[in-house]
Simulated assay, not measured.
Amino acid sequence: MVTDSAPARSVDPRRGRRSERNGGRRAARREPYLLMFPALLVMAALFLFPAVYNTVLAFQELTPYQSPGDATWAGGDNFVALFTNPATGSAAFNTAFWLTGVTVVVRLVFGLALAVVLQSAILERWRVRGLARTLVLVPWMVPPVVAVAAWRWMLDGNTGVINQTLVSLGLLDQGVPFLAQTSTVWFAVDAIIVWRELPFVVIVLMAGLQSIPKEQYEAAQLDSAGRWQQFLNVTLPNLRPVITVVILMTVIATFNNFVYVWLATGGGPGTYTQVLATQLYSTAFIGNDLGGGAAIGIVMTAVMAVFAVVYLRASNTVGKDER
């Protein structure tokens, strides 16, 4: 019996090598993602899961004494209660103006001035530049809790060193309870924040100043530009990207800050210094309304997200126009 056999197919060795190369490329492209996967998993567990759970919690009713399984669906009631609460408007104003706006502007102005002074040649000639930079860093080394406790003692109306000094100099007849009266409490709280957080601004701006090429100042001097003109036409334009980052980081960190106001005044006198962060804590853990506190957190996050997007777009637009 005759059987037909199929002709043997010839294998192109180039095709095999090509497939091996393609497989190697695919493996090389996957390798960075595989190496990053553990870190991404940890970040998701630490950041993404709490964010998602907080969003879900904002639409539920739950107390700190209940398990998550006991939560009941509330829909948008938590947000309605938040926006109809008269205290929310006052807390939002305090957060945006007193806590964030005033302190960020003051830190930026004083931080830029100190950074310029610390970079000045006169400190180098006197050989005290290192000492001056170390002294500027001291407040940043102090934990916020310790800083607030120290300032509360110094600002005490009876035994505080500030009041005793002012009375001994004849500037006051009696001590002023800076943290207990509405006319002075926000100035005192802002002073604490500026004192503790100013070194960060100084360090970042000082690094920006060191990155400015000296040739630009030499060219400005050849054009007979004075120091003020050099500052306006050389220093500030070069520092604009750094200032953008400083403003963005300080606004976000300050807007969400809880420690300074709560430890200094507890939101008082009464609710005069209540901010959104302290309102969140009071609602969730004093009023036993975790859903209401989560709703405040969602609103704060949304406000900061909008600010970040708008500010960065505006900064990018300015940078493109300059180029």
Rank of each mutant, 00 (worst) to 15 (best):
V251H: 05
P269V: 07
P237R: 03
P237Y: 01
V275N: 14
L222V: 13
I247L: 15
T235S: 08
I247W: 05
V261I: 15
W262G: 01
L232P: 00
N238H: 14
G268L: 08
T235Q: 02
A219W: 08
Y281D: 10
V259I: 15
N256S: 15
Y281L: 13
P237I: 02
N256C: 10
A219M: 13
A219G: 12
L248R: 02
V275I: 15
I247F: 08
V261C: 03
N238S: 13
V275C: 02
L239I: 02
Y272D: 15
L236N: 05
A253T: 10
L236H: 04
D223R: 05
A264I: 10
L239V: 00
T250M: 14
A225D: 03
V259K: 04
W262S: 14
S224V: 09
L280T: 13
L239T: 00
W262P: 01
G268K: 04
V245E: 03
V242E: 00
P237E: 08
T235A: 03
A264F: 03
I247Q: 01
N256P: 04
V245S: 11
N233T: 11
F255Y: 14
G226P: 05
A264M: 05
I247G: 00
V261S: 09
V242D: 00
Q229P: 01
T278A: 10
F231M: 08
Q221V: 09
F255L: 06
Q229Y: 07
V234A: 02
L276Y: 13
N233K: 11
Q230T: 04
L222C: 12
D223G: 08
Q230K: 10
G226T: 01
F255S: 10
Q230Y: 08
T254Q: 02
T273C: 07
N256Y: 03
G266N: 08
L236E: 05
V251D: 01
W262I: 13
L276W: 13
Q221P: 01
Q230E: 14
W228D: 00
V242Y: 01
L280H: 09
N238E: 04
Y281S: 10
P269M: 05
T244I: 10
N256D: 13
Q230L: 06
L263R: 11
A264C: 10
T278Y: 06
F255T: 06
W228K: 04
T235V: 13
N257D: 15
N233Y: 15
V251F: 02
A253D: 12
R227T: 09
I252Q: 12
R240S: 06
A219Q: 12
Q229G: 12
A253C: 04
R240L: 11
L276D: 15
G270M: 11
A277F: 12
T278L: 12
R240K: 11
W228E: 02
T250E: 06
L276V: 15
